[in-house]
């Protein structure tokens, strides 16, 4: 068995890796096919656009999470951080609205980007300078951000000024040549992410640090700096997601972004990025986000599953997708 395999190794390896990388897209295709068979409305332009637009949040945050996870880190605070950034952004916009009018929107968005990046920087510095496991650090900041948004909203909801609502709404609901803005923003972020990850020195260091931090350190890579930077990228991506999120419902509540961290991590891992680090697939993450959103959509469109069992079926599909991935990529 082994001799036969060794003989064909070079050829089959090239072939094999491509299969592994394609796995999330194949899984996505299968689920879409399933959806088409279950309900004819699934393929309607409206439904497809809704689902793709909705998956933008998880996909955008996922691009950042791909960096953090590729360095061997983990960020559990992203859901709460999104809520916190959304809260700060709404407060900033509302405060600026009387004096600046619609210009409060771009300035507020800028504030969000700065605040998001700083939140990421904080996570990163505590992890690297404090030498604490990222799991614990971000578990702590998750609680902090969640408490802050609860405090800021007074446990009710924090709504954006009515005068800004109409001007800002198109950022989620509008489109350019038929492509919704959140989808364009997702593509831009994913392209940027892919460029940084695959075409720059920093990108190569990210996977080097993730696959073996000691080797990376001995070869002259500043491991702490690479890791911290990954958290900053994550914070920036969270802020971009927040900018797309606010125009949708126009409000932040204490439950905004709740449990999104799990969805994001799931999307990243389905996409082929290793949870222990060292291997990253930006486009896989985007496909992963789409898979999660399509599964949820198909569940609602089908009448086969009791409402009590929807979550069980979703969980099973994710595990099956991962198993399929494993068998296509490691054989």
């Amino acid at each position: 068995m082994s001799s036969a395999e060794i003989a064909t190794l070079p050829e089959s390896e090239g072939f094999r890796i491509r299969w592994g990388e394609l796995a999330p897209f194949i899984a996505l295709g299968v689920i879409i096919l399933l959806g088409t068979m279950i309900n004819s409305n699934f393929m309607s332009a409206n439904n497809i656009l809704n689902v793709i637009t909705r998956s933008a949040f998880i996909a955008i945050i996922g691009v950042g999470a791909t960096f953090v996870i590729a360095t061997g880190g983990l960020d559990l605070s992203i859901g709460s951080m999104l809520a916190f950034v959304v809260g700060i952004m709404i407060m900033a916009m509302n405060a600026l609205a009387p004096s600046l009018g619609p210009w409060a929107i771009p300035i507020g968005a800028l504030v969000a980007l700065v605040v998001g990046s700083l939140c990421g920087l904080m996570n990163g510095l505590i992890v690297t300078l404090g030498r604490i496991e990222p799991f614990i650090v971000t578990l702590g900041t998750m609680g902090i951000f969640r408490a802050l948004i609860t405090y800021m909203t007074d446990c009710g909801s924090l709504s954006i000024d009515r005068s800004l609502r109409t001007a800002y709404r198109p950022v989620y609901f509008g489109d350019f040549l038929g492509v919704p803005y959140p989808v364009i923003i997702t593509l831009v972020i994913a392209l940027l992410g892919a460029f940084i990850l695959y075409r720059t020195k920093y990108g190569r260091r990210v996977t080097a640090v993730g696959s073996n931090s000691d080797v990376a350190r001995f070869s002259g890579v500043h491991v702490g700096r690479v890791r911290t930077m990954a958290f900053v990228i994550q914070g920036f991506c969270v802020a971009v997601a927040a900018i797309c999120y606010v125009p949708r419902l126009g409000a932040a509540t204490p439950t905004t972004g709740q449990l999104w961290e799990l969805q994001v991590i799931t999307a990243v891992v389905i996409g082929g990025t290793l949870l222990r680090g060292g291997k990253a697939h930006i486009w896989g993450t985007v496909a992963g986000a789409l898979i999660l959103e399509v599964i949820a959509n198909v569940m609602v469109l089908s009448d086969m599953v009791s409402e009590y069992l929807v979550a069980a079926v979703q969980g099973a599909i994710i595990i099956i997708a991962m198993l399929a991935h494993r068998f296509t990529s490691s054989r």
Binding site: N41, N47, N50, R54, R248, T253, T256, A296, N297, V300
Partner: peptide, 17 residues
Amino acid sequence: NWNQDEAFTLMQDYLGK
């Protein structure tokens, strides 16, 4: 789940269905 976002998503799916 008494959540605005999930209600939005679910309603979009109802409307499509």
